[in-house]
Design a protein around this nucleic acid. Structure first.
Lengths: 213, 213
DNA sequence: GCCGCTATTGTGGATGACCGCAAGCCTGCC
DNA sequence: GGCAGGCTTGCGGTCATCCACAATAGCGGC
């Protein structure tokens, strides 16, 4: 669907020496990477479908790493972000992590430790991607539904019989059947059970399962 | 179900002055709290159904706060833990948060800030509790199922017809129907759709929805 | 040996789901 | 006006589900 985006470790640092050192480190460990000389450069190039992770300095000329992470998150990214800092403190680290950073390490850092962290960040991104692509797929299918079909789908997921649905919508049972069939077809499922699983998993639908007890 | 456990903010600190100060702070802000003079004391008293949050010093006589958090997590607790430290550093804070701590603050701290943090921790616990109680409920129902019933349920959730299920289990369709009815009854649902929703939501069942496309 | 639980099966009927075929109505667009 | 897409409906039939009634059988415990 999307262009074949290879997972990349994006190095964002205004210090060329650091960029070169990190770039060399990752390449020698077979971790594909790209470098950016500023948060602005990175944000200008950033595409929604990028995968991998970000290794970014907190303090940079121009936009800071924290602001950059906020900006990239606002654009819908879930790329794991690893912050590097030379002059960090506890509140800064806590704030970054609570806002969703993947890790926060201080210079000087251990090469092996950083590579390990990057690896786990890449793993996490891969997992996220799988979940997200499922959600996107389901969302796209939902888009195809007509208004009436969505309406009928809701009632199906509420566990109602075609007869009841027909009654509530003031249409004939046959019409409900047609809509129902279209919903299944467009959603790519073959039963109401599959439909429920798909939507519940994707978290895109919440029926008020009224288990009266 | 569980005894009426009021949300409590548990203060764990070996320094009596701090305990008293925190206890006073919380009480004057209408935050019910309890105090413990050591990690060991807390762990000895801890009950699974406790709700609220934990405010704990990292460095204490005897068991450290980090070890205590590990211990309490191993006992299944998801209580939000707020660490307090006088001599913390970045790696310690990062490690604590990555292991699931709710927050990590340094002494001296701002009273208002701490109360705010505790409030959001209590909120999070309340949210967790709601989700967890649903999961526990479903798990309890699953427990009631006999082996055969669980087996049949799996095939139902795989979207198979009774006929196919009967075939795979080498039993008659009628028997499948009986098991099916019992599964619905014990799980408190009235259709396969509800069953799928309940289990998928609780995250207690994952059918390999094989949407071949 | 009797009881309770689980697993098993059959018959027959009511109800619901699914489908092909056929067709009418309305709306927006070229 | 014609065409496409969405919404609607009916008929008749097949297949699946649900259920009441009825019954057999093994297993562990009192």
């Amino acid at each position: 669907m999307t262009t074949d985006t290879t997972p990349l470790t994006h190095i964002v640092d205004d210090d060329e020496a650091i960029r070169d050192a990190l770039s060399w480190l990752f390449r020698t460990r077979n971790v594909p990477c790209a470098t950016w000389a500023s948060a602005e450069d990175f944000l200008a190039a950033y595409q929604e479908d990028w995968r991998g992770c970000i290794v970014m300095d907190i303090r940079m000329q121009g936009m800071s790493g924290l602001d950059c992470s906020t900006a990239v998150r606002q654009r819908g990214s879930t790329l794991p972000i690893i912050f590097i800092t030379g002059h960090g403190d506890v509140p800064m680290a806590v704030g970054a992590l609570k806002r969703g950073a993947f890790d926060f390490i201080e210079k000087p850092f251990d090469d092996n430790a950083l590579v390990d962290i990057v690896q786990s960040a890449l793993d996490e991104d891969a997992r996220n991607q799988a979940r997200r692509s499922a959600r996107v797929d389901v969302a796209a299918r939902l888009e195809q539904l007509t208004g009436r079909e969505r309406e009928v789908m809701g009632l199906i997921l509420a566990g109602k019989f075609n007869k009841v649905i027909a009654d509530e919508l003031n249409i004939s049972m046959r019409t409900v059947e047609v809509h129902r069939a279209r919903v299944f077809e467009k959603m790519g499922v073959r039963s109401a059970v599959e439909l429920a699983q798909q939507l519940t998993l994707a978290g895109l639908y919440n029926s008020a399962t009224p288990s009266a007890e």
